[in-house]
């Protein structure tokens, strides 16, 4: 049980990679290999050419640039998790990473690989969707910037042409002291989410919701923003009843997925519960920051 024969390419620069992508037939980029390798081992995917981008130094890195975080697509999930910069200015990402597989898979798995693979139950796309991240693509025909909202084009189909490379991600940062929460339900720790919600929350001086972002994973072909719930919360005091009501809208505004792990009805219910938990965590953190600094 191992992959059928392929040709292996190991470029050292982005330019070389783009050249290979533009000229090779049936090529697959190999990032951390935590999704592509299982698929190749089982022969679900049988690319003629594998382009290993693990040796391109300038595709990895974490950098705070003003009010955004710039992350190279080949940055390992474990490096992101351990990064003091991520913990300080993008704590939602840190918290979600603890639910992505296990240490052993995060050591290899990359943020870009997770985004390009776009498993419908992956955690990172939901976090980036809540954060209104931008994805930076390189290609021989030109470079493009794609908003996270435009990234998923259907089941495991990112907005990425076969000759393009996802090179970097920028995440606009929320003000210091914002609330955040990530909640997911899985059968076993480290599994993909049956449903999971990423929440960001900022309160004004009166304790009312100044800004809120909610994104759910595991319930549709890609991550879904809960705009109805966000609208309900905006400008109001986030009391328990309002949070519960907003979270309930998750159950009606997401389609749900039917698979061996659960029915769509069950997943919609889970989505509502996870949204409530993520919001409660975000509120507690936003309030404790207010108390500390207000």
């Amino acid at each position: 049980m191992k992959p059928p024969a392929f040709s292996y390419h190991r470029p050292h620069t982005v330019a070389e990679t783009l050249e290979l992508l533009a000229t090779l037939e049936d090529a697959k980029l190999l990032a951390g290999g935590q999704s592509l390798m299982p698929m190749m081992n089982f022969r679900y995917v049988m690319p003629a050419n594998v382009i290993d981008i693990n040796r391109i130094a300038d595709l990895a890195g974490i950098e705070e640039r003003g009010d955004a975080l710039a992350i190279g697509a080949m940055t390992r999930q474990r490096d992101l998790e351990l990064s003091p910069v991520v913990q300080r200015c993008c704590p939602l990402l840190h918290e979600a990473l603890l639910n992505v597989g296990h240490v052993q898979t995060r050591n290899r798995g990359t943020i870009g690989g997770s985004l390009a693979h776009l498993d419908p139950a992956a955690e990172l796309p939901a976090v980036l969707h809540a954060h209104d991240a931008t994805l930076h693509l390189r290609g021989r025909r030109g470079d493009r910037a794609v908003a996270m909202a435009e990234w998923s084009q259907g089941f495991m189909t990112p907005n990425l042409a076969p000759d393009e490379l996802l090179a970097a991600i920028t995440i606009p940062l929320w003000p210091t002291g914002h609330g955040y929460g990530f909640a997911e339900f899985t059968r076993r720790h480290g599994d993909f989410a049956m449903a999971g919600t990423a929440a960001l929350l900022a309160l004004d001086a009166q304790g009312k919701v100044e800004r809120v972002a909610l994104a759910v994973t595991g319930v549709d072909t890609g991550p879904v923003r809960l705009s109805d719930a966000e609208a309900m919360l905006l400008g109001k005091a986030p009391e328990d009843a309002l949070i519960a009501a907003a979270a309930e809208t998750a159950a009606i505004s997401v389609p749900g997925l039917d698979d061996v792990h659960g029915s769509k009805e069950y997943r919609r219910k889970l989505a509502a519960v996870m949204t409530k938990r993520a919001l409660l965590a975000a509120r507690a953190r936003a309030r404790s920051e207010e108390a500390a600094h207000g």
Binding site: Y8, G33, Q34, M37, D52, R78, T105, N107, R108
Partner: peptide, 13 residues
């Protein structure tokens, strides 16, 4: 020094 799944790495990697 870091754990990895050796079934998910090519030897040449």
């Amino acid at each position: 020094g870091r754990t990895a799944r050796s079934c998910l790495m090519l030897a040449v990697q």
